[in-house]
């Protein structure tokens, strides 16, 4: 008996983030894709909707001591600590090299340890032609605020948003931390402060303990937990924030298949980032792009853009 092949041709995978149209919603997440080169050795990364490059700070950073990585059930902990070459070298060396392997607009992930640093880094990356969108990671500790994360209270998250919006022209997406009591109030505050979109979620604070040494597995003791295990948490948060704001959401957390992408979009995400999955399967993002039309066909979806927030209706 001939197998029924669902019709995959003509499925529309494009989505639009604040005027920026992507061929598909699949975006490797910041910190899991470097500047793209390692992956470009394996496949043509231009098949991706976009990608978010490693978080940039003003000064070069080595990050935390090693070990920085711990394996977990269906996920991992990282305490990389925002290692990056610093704003100047990102602009002088990494972006020109990135241009040789990726020809679409890219997402610049911005980190800072003061309001001034966020504004300065964002303003500089905003001027880079290839940057299509700014993703502001507010999970960093505020060195002038006792080390408390900018993202853990609505006021400081809103202040970062205002400072960045004042000095940039490209869409500004605030990347929220899930390690908060009420993510909805923080998303609302960012929207009110002028954010063009929300990117969520960053990693969940976690830890592992090594039975042999009886010490925390990563040198920094705690780190960010991510990977397939966090998908339900991320979906729940995207779902809640979608109900509370009117700006687009880039959803992420545990996404590793085309089905996960569609779940995220039904919860309310316009586009979807893929993080830890890239580290274990370097082809993960490409595989998801390739699987999408067939999974759309299986569920009778013509246009992905039309399913955004679909789980909220009816």
């Amino acid at each position: 008996m001939a197998e029924m092949k669902p019709q995959t041709a003509g499925r529309d995978t494009s989505v639009t983030l604040s005027g920026l149209t992507l061929d598909n919603p699949v975006i490797p997440a910041s910190g899991t894709f470097g500047y793209g080169y390692e992956f470009a050795e394996l496949y043509d990364i231009n098949c991706l909707g976009s990608f978010s490059f490693k978080g940039t700070t003003k000064e070069p950073r080595f990050g935390n001591p090693t070990p920085r990585i711990a394996d977990c059930t269906a996920g991992m902990i990282n305490s990389v600590g925002l290692q990056n070459p610093g704003l100047d070298r990102v602009i002088r060396e990494e972006l020109p090299r990135l241009r040789t392997c990726f020809h679409k607009p890219v997402i610049a992930n911005v980190c800072g340890f003061s309001f001034e640093e966020y504004a300065e880094v964002a303003a500089a990356l905003d001027k880079e032609e290839q940057v299509g969108l700014l993703e502001i990671n507010v999970s960093c500790p505020n060195v002038h605020g006792g080390g408390m994360g900018f993202g853990i209270c609505p006021d400081t998250a809103a202040e970062v948003t205002r400072r960045v919006k004042a000095v940039t022209r490209k869409p500004v997406y605030i990347k929220l931390s899930p390690n908060v009591t009420d993510i909805v109030s923080i998303a609302r505050a960012c929207e009110a402060a002028g954010a063009d979109g929300i990117s969520m979620i960053n990693t969940l604070l976690g830890m592992r303990i090594d039975l042999r040494t009886r010490k925390p597995t990563v040198a920094n003791r705690m780190g960010g937990f991510s990977g397939p295990a966090i998908l339900p948490v991320a979906l729940r948060m995207v779902y809640q924030v979608y109900e509370a704001v009117h700006i687009p959401i880039i959803g992420m957390g545990g996404v590793s298949s085309a089905r996960d992408v569609m779940e995220m979009m039904l919860a309310g995400a316009t586009a979807v980032e893929v993080g830890a999955a890239n580290l274990v399967n370097p082809y993960a993002a490409r595989d998801i792009v390739e699987e999408l039309p067939a999974v759309m066909a299986q569920y009778g979806i013509q246009s992905l853009q039309k399913i955004i927030g679909g789980a909220h209706h009816g």
Binding site: G31, T32, F33, G34, Y37, E38, F39, K54, F62, G63, T66, P67, R68, I69, A70, M76, N78, V80, Q83, N278, L279, V280, P282
Partner: peptide, 15 residues
């Protein structure tokens, strides 16, 4: 060093 990816993408193994 403890590795995340093993191919240069995650910065897990820096020295």
């Amino acid at each position: 060093e403890r590795m995340g990816c093993g191919f240069g993408a995650c910065m897990g193994c820096s020295c």
